[in-house]
Every structure is written in C-alpha cells, then in structure tokens.
Design a protein around this nucleic acid. Structure first.
Length: 367
DNA sequence: CACTGTAGCGCTTATGTTTC
DNA sequence: GAAACATAAGCGCTACAGTG
C-alpha cells in the first residue's frame, strides 16, 4: 500500500487528490466564491474534479493551498467537499491563498464588508460575469423559464454585447440567434419561441427572476402574495415591506435599494414595453385548508409525483413546505433514497410519512 | 442567544435534442 | 454518429436573516 494509506487512515468513502488551482468565481450579486480545481479523483462512485470552498475564511480555516494533497469526500454521499489537507505532503513553497483585490473578470475592486464572509466584485452592471449570471438566473426554470437559453448562449450574447439586461432578450431576432455558435436554424427558432412564451409569466416568478439580493423563491412568493402587484411593492417604503412575513430590515433594505436604482427601473419598464406581462394576485386569502398551520419537509424521490407536485398539493391545502427539518416540522415526507433529512427527522422525533401514508393524507380531505 | 429557515453557491449522473 | 448543450433531479454546506 502507498505510504499515505498507512499514515492517514481515511474512510473508504474518502480519497486523496491534489489541488491544481484555486479560482474565484463571480456570481450574480458579485460574490467571489473560491473553488478548488482538483486532479480528478474517484469518490463514492463518481469522479470529482471541482469542489467549493465557500468563502475565503473557509479556505484559510482549512488552510488549503495550491498544490496541496487533500482528503475529499462526498458529504451525505452527494456534495463533494475538502475534508482536510495532508500536512506532510505540502510543498515548502506553497503560499496561502489570498483574496484578490480585483475582480478576476472585470478588474473592479473587490469589497469585503466588515463582518461579512462574502467578498464582492463592485463592478455591478459593468462586470460581464455579473451580467451573465443575472441573465442566467432570469432565464432559469424557476424564474422566467426560457428553455434553450443556457450558459453558453448567454455567454455569447453578453460577449457580443447583444444582451445587457433581461429586457434585451425580447429584442433578439432569428438571424441574430442563428449566428451563435452551436445554434442552427432549428435551435434559434425554438429559442425565439421560448423567449416569446416567457412573456406570459407570474408575479412571483418575475420577482424571483429580477435577482434582488436575498429574494429567493420563498421570499418572492411572500412578497407577491402580500402586495399583489409590482406597483404596490415598488411604491412601498422599507417599513411597509417589513410587514411581509420573514422579511426584516436587511431584506427590506435590499428590496428598496433595488427599486431605487434608475437602471433597474429602466429594465422593468423595458420588460413591460416588450410585452412581458404577469397578472396581479388576489390579496392573500386566509388559508383554510385541511393542513393549515402544518409544516412539511419533503425528502427523497416520490414515485407517483414530483416533489414540486407534492409541494403544490400541500400548499393548496394550507400547509407550509420548507427545506430544512426542525422540531417545528409537523411531518417529513420520505420518498426513496432519502438522505440526511430523514435521519435528522428521526433524531428530532418528527413523524415520518412514507409515500403511501402521504397519499392517504392528501386523499383524506377529498382531493 | 438559540433556533429556524432561506439564499446562494456547488456537485453529480442521466437523458434528450440539435449541431457539426 | 459524435460532440455539445440544456435540462431534470436531488441534496450539502455556510452564512446569515428573522424571531422571540
């Protein structure tokens, strides 16, 4: 056996590999995320070659450096993770990773707000990475759901300066699209149709798609339900926005700041002008379903429906569906190959429903 | 301060469609 | 027919906001 196998007894679901490089990726809000590029290594049934290090503190905490030999595992047998470095395998000249002062993409200053873990590129609209990511988010399935508009296509459109904001998508023409790499007549037509289709959307999707910081799917839905229309949200002040459940001063400030930006207002107006529409919502009716007040978590794979359908069935009955298990969780619905959430539920004594029991629960109130 | 939940990042394989 | 690309599906980890 190699020497390290004796010196470092690690579990069979862990493996050793070398960090080839540590790069910083720029996200939609400018966040710089360090990612370790690894010499590909086989762990728990898959080959892992990238692994996130979350933030610069995490890099320093684990003291991961370029060239280091590291122990890699798949947390919960899913997500790749650097467990630790093997100290006696470090090269003497390995230098600690530093947070770059400039955005690796646009060269703008990198700002790390005191007390926050995340460092951000200050480039905003001028950073092509931020633009790209914002567009990707806008087009993503749970937002405006533009099928066929993936990473590569967006990259090209941004590179050619054909698309700067989501509104520009709605001005694209067939010949423009057909000129892109890997895009033929057929694909171009399909994409154009998908863009057209996305014009009919919903307020929660639009709010989510705008990419306001800290406004994900759940918050977007809560905002939409509370205000019923974009106009009412846009004209609300921070205090009013905080009336929304789960929205406090920080999120309210992000929302207010978003709608205070001229640039954002222009984009919203342009979206409307191009024909993007969403119906207003009825003011939230008091929920009176059979499961009102109950909180559910869904884990694993259901055979008779998707998780999304299960979630819809539950919320239609007044239940709340969350992503993490706590002692406030009323039930956990466990499908096949449930992972750590099921374990957590059992730990906390949260009642577990298998699929059969879940269906009976849904069926028992007539639909 | 403890607890709860969301956001946002990231990972994989499998599969289908279109391009080249 | 191979390659490229997008999508679908599922979940982990960390940070941090909100709440009482």
């Amino acid at each position: 056996a190699p020497r390290w196998a004796i010196a470092h007894k690690f579990a069979p679901d862990e493996a050793l590999t070398v960090v080839r490089d540590i790069e910083f990726q720029v996200g939609r809000t400018g966040a710089l995320t360090p990612v370790a590029r690894l010499a590909p290594v086989f762990v728990s049934g898959v080959t892992v070659s990238n692994v996130t290090l979350h933030n610069i503190d995490e890099v320093h905490r684990k003291d991961v450096r370029v060239g280091d030999t590291v122990v890699v595992r798949r947390a919960g047998d899913v997500i790749p993770e650097v467990v630790s470095v093997v100290p006696d395998r470090r090269r003497e000249d390995a230098r600690p990773v530093q947070l770059p002062e400039r955005c690796p993409v646009c060269g703008s200053r990198v700002l790390r707000v005191e007390g926050e873990a995340v460092a951000r590129c200050t480039g905003g609209f001028t950073c092509s990475a931020q633009r790209q990511e914002a567009l990707r988010h806008f087009a993503s399935r749970r937002a405006l759901d533009i099928e066929g508009l993936g990473e590569r296509m967006i990259e090209q459109l941004v590179e050619r300066d054909q698309v700067k904001s989501p509104a520009d998508l709605y001005a694209l023409t067939l010949p423009q699209l057909a000129q892109l790499e890997r895009m033929g007549e057929k694909s171009a037509a399909n994409l154009l149709a998908a863009i057209e289709k996305s014009k009919q959307t919903t307020l929660p999707r639009l709010l989510y798609g705008l990419g306001i910081r800290d406004v994900g799917e759940a918050t977007a839905l809560a905002l939409a339900r509370h205000f019923g229309s974009l106009e009412r949200l846009m004209s609300a002040d921070e205090r009013t926005i905080q009336q929304v459940p789960d929205v406090g001063p920080v999120v309210a400030a992000h929302i207010a700041a978003f709608f205070a930006s001229e640039e954002h207002l222009r984009v919203i107006k342009a979206l409307r002008d191009k024909g993007v529409t969403w119906p207003d919502l009825e003011p939230a009716p008091r929920s009176t379903g059979s499961l009102t007040g109950r909180t559910f978590v869904i884990t694993g794979t259901l055979s008779s429906m998707t998780r999304e359908q299960a979630q819809e069935a539950l919320t239609a009955r007044g239940a709340k569906v969350t992503a993490s298990v706590s002692k406030k969780t009323s039930y956990i619905v466990a499908g096949g190959e449930a992972g750590s959430k099921l374990a957590r539920a059992e730990e906390l004594g949260v009642p577990v429903l298998n699929e059969q029991q879940f269906l009976e629960l849904l069926g028992s109130d007539g639909g």
